[in-house]
Design a protein around this nucleic acid. Structure first.
Length: 155
DNA sequence: GCCAACGTTGGC
DNA sequence: GCCAACGTTGGC
C-alpha cells in the first residue's frame, strides 16, 4: 500500500465537500499537471491512503484522510467545453487527463498547518515542505504518514 | 495583491 | 531542441 497527499482549495472543494458527496466519494477532477496525473494514472491503487491538504486559504495544512476507491479512469471534465477544466486537446480516444476516485475517511479535529509541518525536524524531507513544490498530487513515505497521523491524534 | 518558483507553449 | 515569454500555483 502507498501513501499520498492531495491538495485542494477549500473555496473550490473542501474536505467537507468531500464528506457531503454521495457515498463520501468524488472523482478527483481538474488536475492538469502531468506529474500529478501520472501518479494518479500509474501508481495510485485501490486502498491507498491519502492526506487531504487545503491550499490557498487562511491556514494551509493537512485537514484529514481519504482513500482511493477506484483506480485511474479518464477525467471527463476535460471533454466538456462548459467546464473550467476543459482541454481542447483531450478527446474520447485520447482523454489526456486521468483521475482516481477518492473517499472521505476522517476529518482531523484541528488542521495540521503547513507551519507545523515545516517546523517538525522529522518532516524536512517531505516533498510538501520543499521550496517551490507546486505538485497537487504527491507521494508520502510511510514514516511521514504515520507521524502525521500521530500528530493528528495529539492535536 | 505580490511575487518566487515552477511548468508549458511556440517560434526559430 | 533551445529558450524567451507567458501562465499558474500557492504562501505570505
Amino acid at each position: 500500500m502507498k501513501y499520498w497527499l492531495m491538495k485542494t482549495e477549500p473555496d473550490t472543494f473542501s474536505i467537507q465537500d468531500l464528506y457531503n458527496s454521495k457515498n463520501h466519494t468524488t472523482s478527483w477532477e481538474g488536475v492538469r499537471n502531468y506529474q500529478a496525473r501520472n501518479f494518479m494514472r500509474d501508481q495510485m491503487k485501490k486502498g491507498d491512503l491519502i492526506l487531504i491538504y487545503h491550499s490557498s486559504c487562511k491556514t494551509p495544512g493537512i485537514v484529514g484522510l481519504a482513500s482511493v476507491t477506484r483506480e485511474s479512469h479518464p477525467d471527463r471534465t476535460a471533454l466538456d467545453p462548459n467546464s473550467n477544466y476543459y482541454d481542447p486537446k483531450a478527446t474520447i480516444e485520447n482523454p489526456r487527463w486521468y483521475l482516481v476516485d477518492v473517499k472521505w475517511k476522517e476529518t482531523f479535529n484541528k488542521t495540521i498547518s503547513l507551519k507545523t509541518l515545516k517546523a517538525n525536524p522529522k518532516l524536512q524531507e517531505m516533498k510538501l515542505v520543499q521550496k517551490g513544490c507546486r505538485l497537487s498530487v504527491m507521494p508520502v513515505t510511510k514514516n511521514e504518514f504515520n507521524l502525521i497521523l500521530e500528530i493528528s491524534k495529539t492535536n
